[in-house]
Design a protein around this nucleic acid. Sequence first.
RNA 1: GCGGCUGUAGUCUAGUUUGGUUAGGACGUCAGCCUGCCACGCUGAGGACCCGGGUUCAAAUCCCGGCAGCCGCACCA
Length: 587
Amino acid sequence: MTDETKTPDKFTIINELARRRCFFWQSYKIYGGVSGFVTYGFLGAKLKQNIEKKVRELFVNKLGILEIESPIITPSKVFEASGHVDHFKEPMVECMKCKRRFRADHLLEEFAEISSLEAEKLSLEEVKEAIEKHEIRCSECEGTFGEPKYFLTMFKTTIGPYSEAVGYGRPEAAQGIFVEFRRLYEMAREKLPFGVMQIGHVLRNEISPRQGLIRSREFTIIDLEFFFDPEKPNCYLLKDYENETLPLVLAENKLRGSEEIVEVTVRDALEKGYIKAEWQSVFMVLAKKLLVDLGVPTEKQRFIEKLPWEKAHYALQSFDQEIYVERWGWIEVSGHAYRTDYDLKRHMQFSGIDMRVFKEYEKPVEKEQTVVKPLMVRLGPVFKEEAAKVAKMLSEADPEEVEASIRKNGSFTLGKYRITPEYVEITRSNVKELGKRFIPYVVEPSFGSDRMVYVALEYAYRVKDDRVILSFPRDIAPLQVGVYTLVSKDGLPERALQVYRMLINEGFSVEYDEAGSIGRRYARADEIGMPLGITVDYETLKDNTITIRDRDSWKQVRCRIEDLPELLRKYFRWKADFNDLGEPFES
RNA sequence: GCGGCUGUAGUCUAGUUUGGUUAGGACGUCAGCCUGCCACGCUGAGGACCCGGGUUCAAAUCCCGGCAGCCGCACCA
């Protein structure tokens, strides 16, 4: 089969349909286009909003997750703390002969037997030396490599017109949550567990974004950070979901070269240690259900565990929720990372702000405590200007250790200083400890809005009698109802417009169409996935009834105009089926 | 980012080999007619040679550069 006769695949068809019916298209086309940027049209924007609305219903409304919005431009300090400045850049080398580019750290791992952890730490200079020392050459043409250079996948800018202050476009929305943790914890009335979600644009300067909505340089991410007490990791929702199953591809199987899907219940996954955090397992079930609601059956979904070297730097354990699409096979729509206390701890180190929360014990703990009090009167004259530093170091040392060491050795070594008993006063007293401070742990479900839009489109796509139908689940369809005239004369348009205005006032998203034949209008509506069509005919003028047409079955029922708002409300909230909307109607 | 192929209305495309009158068609869109339930038909309208430079009397067509798309390689933390 030649390329010319090959039938286009679904991705091509969906993209063509998306352009033609204004769901989305490549941005900046009048200037030739820029790859990696997408503009949503009326229908696409609506579809995306409806999908995000479902996410909000699921997490914000039902779970009480708090939603926030934070800026895209972020001072460099934040991403230094989060580790992104170190991890989002990759040393690359270019072959001088064939111009192929390679990840320098990957070359070193492979040919110099330097571990990935060590390779990451090397400076450009050290990378260069290592390549020269091990005489690494281009694997394709044996050419030598040029100077290693960093490729930074974050967009960099300066903040303010005359400023040198470096800022980055955020590559994830999560940090906007972590940096506000103290205030958010207050917002949650200082109770764990709680979650914070944000939906917003992120920027990643991809090297070669070629997959439309699947991979672009600016896209919408839904990051949900769920904070819990590591000593109380139990999820109170587990009992509702423990019998649900998850299709897992485990790291241990991947290591053996198998991508076998193991269908296990949540309970088993936790008991067998496949998933390390209860909350994570529940979010994975919710993610599965969300995608089912977007039209992706369970058997087209899987959760694939990341191998240690595939994982993001912040994750203890990580699963990608993947959906099977025709063009590329499995693609990620959400990531489920167990970030532990990594981010808050790092921000605590870098900012100096205490990110710990206070937990009161059920009963205050009375315990004998050793207190080591530096005697400044004696420290001062001996240590002079270093006295304050020594005192500070002493107060940071474990008092028990200081006491034990002094009792045993007659002194305690503090860095280069030797502390002998005359410098300190050691007392033991009973103290009442009311509670303790700790950094909460985090599990993070993170969804790609745009990819969910794409899979919703691909899974909605059907062909019936050579006509294209987008069978969106009724609650994400961009437009809900079409209002039509059987023929556009004899007062039918006037009556139909009344129905149209009435439905708009009732809050539905409605389109009125009287152009061309009725069949053509039905076809046009099917192609953009409008679930219902209401047709005003000659009967309407006699008895105020209309017909409702179902997008998927093309069946029709007849009901009274005045009953429409209530019936449609029920229908779109899945409280009624199509057949409940009226009496069967045959034309 | 590298290599190969490609770029014509909203969409799909003819024309490019061999430069030459007003760039042709289909679908869609709009206006009018028609139309009693699944893209009927008729009439009319609007709509395109990716951008820049070069060669030439003359460039959609040839050459160079850029941008973009497709395929392969690499990349996707």
